Simulated assay, not measured.
Amino acid sequence: MIRMKSSRSFIFLLCPVMVVLFLYYSSFKMHLRSPVQKSQADLDRLLSVGRVVATEYDKQGFLTKPDRKLPLELQYTFGNLSKGECKPGYAEAKMTSIYPKFSKPAPMFLDPNFRRLSKINTYVPPFGVRKQEYIIDRILKATKRYSLGSELDSISCKKCIIIGNGGILSNKSLGSQIDQYDVVVRLNGAPVAGFEKDVGSKTTMRITYPEGAIQKPERYEKSSLFVFSAFKPMDFRWLRHMVLNEKMWITTGFWKSVARVVPREPEDMRILNPYFIQEAAFNFIGLPHNNGIMGIGNIPTLGTVAITMALHNCDEVAVAGFGYNMSTPYAPLHYYEKLRMSAIKESWTHNITKEKEFLRKLVKGGVIQDLTHGI
Rank of each mutant, 00 (worst) to 15 (best):
K94S: 07
K94T: 09
T96S: 14
S97R: 02
S97F: 02
I98C: 05
Y99F: 15
Y99T: 10
P100G: 08
K101V: 05
F102P: 00
S103P: 00
P107T: 10
M108V: 10
F109E: 05
F109K: 03
L110D: 08
L110C: 09
D111C: 11
P112K: 11
P112S: 06
N113G: 14
F114A: 07
R116F: 06
L117Q: 13
L117H: 13
L117E: 08
K119S: 14
I120L: 09
I120W: 01
N121Y: 03
V124C: 06
V124F: 11
V124G: 05
P125G: 11
P125W: 08
P126R: 06
P126T: 11
R130P: 01
R130A: 14
Q132I: 02
Q132Y: 02
Q132A: 13
Q132S: 15
E133W: 01
D137K: 10
I139R: 00
I139D: 03
L140V: 11
L140Y: 02
L140R: 03
L140G: 02
K141I: 08
K141F: 09
A142S: 13
A142T: 15
T143I: 14
K144R: 15
R145V: 10
Y146Q: 05
L148M: 14
S150H: 12
E151Q: 13
L152P: 01
I155R: 14
I155A: 06
S156C: 11
S156D: 12
S156V: 11
C157W: 02
K158I: 13
C160V: 11
C160K: 01
I161D: 09
I162W: 00
I162M: 13
I162P: 01
I163K: 02
I163N: 03
I163F: 01
G164W: 00
G166L: 01
G166T: 04
G167T: 02
L169W: 01
L169N: 13
L169E: 00
K172Q: 15
K172M: 13
K172C: 07
S173T: 10
S173M: 13
S173I: 07
Q177I: 14
Q177Y: 13
Q177S: 11
D179N: 10
Q180C: 09
V183L: 15
V183R: 12
V184Q: 02
V185E: 00
R186K: 12
R186L: 09
